[in-house]
Amino acid sequence: MDDKTAAWILGAGLLVVIFGVIIYLAVMALVLIVPTWRICNRAGYSGAISLLHLIPGVGTLIVFAILAFGTWPAGEATPPGTQTGAR
């Protein structure tokens, strides 16, 4: 294999990787980030938190942790038995 062929193969491989990353980001955006953006907004957080899904491996865990253990700025459902009386 001469240098020119090797360069062509390397370039094509790089393009495939870049294309793959773009497809990955697009699919992630569509199927995960969109609903999570809305969930974060409804919880009172910035929807941009859902972009953490783009971190491979632990991104979803971080988003879940923020939603599960943070105090929702928009308010949380009051557990039964802790409701206060009306004014």
Binding site: A43, F64, L67, A68, F69, W72, E76, A77, P79
Partner: peptide, 9 residues
């Protein structure tokens, strides 16, 4: 975590 999120919702 999903359990806690459901309770909050």
């Amino acid at each position: 975590m999903a359990w806690k999120i459901m309770v909050k919702a």
